[in-house]
Structure formats: structure tokens, C-alpha cells
């Protein structure tokens, strides 16, 4: 486990114009499923660093990290989806997003790619919610035969 948050990949600056971020999604993997977040929300991706636990917070909130002087809360997306805990490995990442003016880190198994999904290929999820984590899915994106589950951050981050 690396403790150096500086080994980060800067993904996008806050002022991005529409064109470069439109229809682009960062995809990441949890178990075998691939999920996507609009790229405009992403600030950076860092490797796992030291996380300080905060008492009295829900189990999926791993704690807070020091991101170059910023105190950023980190939640574990696996736990948020009620999937079993998995040991961090070299692929585990923290995706830092900026959501309603504050930064928040999402721990994911691994980051996959930046996918280009046209609006026409984005479909609403099935209305029947069988799986628990379905509630966090806003849309389903389709690239050829691959399916990416596009996350609803409002629900994911609601405390």
C-alpha cells in the first residue's frame, strides 16, 4: 500500500469546457461490474493512502485523507453497495470527485478507462429494482455489447 498521495493522475481541471467532457465517463470496476461517472465530476485519481477513521460515521465511510492539505472524506463504494469488504491491493484507487462544492473520495477496486458513450446509447435502468445497489444506478450506457452502469451520485453520496 503506497502512502504517497502525490502519485496521482490529474484528470481534469475544474473549468472544463463542455466539449472535452461531454459524453465521457470514467469507468471503474467493482467485482465484475463496470461503473461510470461523468468525467466532469472527476478531480483526480490517487492510489490508496493513509485513511484516518472518523468515529460515529456509517460503515461505508472509511474516514478522511489529507489531500495536499485538504481534508477529504473517503467512502468505500463496495461497502456502499453492500458488497463484502475486500483487501486493498495495488489496483485499488481513490477517485476524487467534486460534488456540490466539496471533494469526496471514492474507493474502487480499479479504474478502467475513459469511455465515450453517446447520448443515444444511454438507457434508463430497468424499473424493477431487484438488486440493492440498483438504487445507485441512474442510467445504463451501452458500448457495442458492453454495458456500463452509470452512477447516480446524489444517491451514492446521500448520508
Amino acid at each position: 500500500m503506497s502512502t504517497n498521495p502525490e502519485q496521482s493522475v490529474a484528470m481534469s481541471s475544474p473549468q472544463h469546457n463542455e466539449d472535452t467532457t461531454k459524453d465521457k465517463f470514467l469507468t471503474f470496476i467493482i467485482d465484475d461490474e463496470e461503473y461510470g461517472i461523468e468525467i466532469a465530476m472527476i478531480r483526480e485519481i490517487i492510489s490508496i493512502c493513509k485513511i484516518t477513521k472518523v468515529p460515529e460515521s456509517p460503515s461505508y465511510v472509511e474516514g478522511i485523507i489529507n489531500l495536499r492539505g485538504d481534508i477529504v472524506p473517503v467512502i468505500n463504494v463496495r461497502n456502499r453497495f453492500n458488497k463484502p469488504w475486500k483487501e486493498y491491493d495495488t489496483l485499488t484507487c481513490i477517485v476524487v470527485i467534486e460534488y456540490t462544492n466539496y471533494k469526496i473520495g471514492l474507493i474502487v477496486d480499479s479504474v478502467n478507462e475513459v469511455a465515450y458513450i453517446q447520448e443515444a446509447n444511454i438507457l434508463p435502468p430497468p424499473s424493477s429494482k431487484i438488486n440493492y445497489y440498483n438504487q445507485f444506478i441512474r442510467n445504463i450506457g451501452r458500448i457495442d455489447e458492453n454495458v456500463k452502469l452509470l452512477l447516480d451520485l446524489d444517491k451514492l453520496l446521500a448520508s
Binding site: K50, T52, E56, V61, I65, I71, Y102, I104
Partner: peptide, 27 residues
């Protein structure tokens, strides 16, 4: 003294946090 992110609601017994010399966070 640094404030905790707004994401956390009021935590009993914890008000704020600070950064230690090695960059670790201390509540």
C-alpha cells in the same frame, strides 16, 4: 485547526482536525 468536511455531521467528542508533522490527520 482545520474543519472537518461538511460531509460529516456533528460528531460527539470531535470538533475539528489537524495535520501532524508527517502529514497524518489527527482528530
Amino acid at each position: 485547526v482545520k474543519t472537518l468536511p461538511k460531509y460529516f455531521k456533528k460528531i460527539r467528542g470531535i470538533s475539528t482536525c489537524t495535520l501532524l508533522g508527517n502529514g497524518d490527520i489527527s482528530l
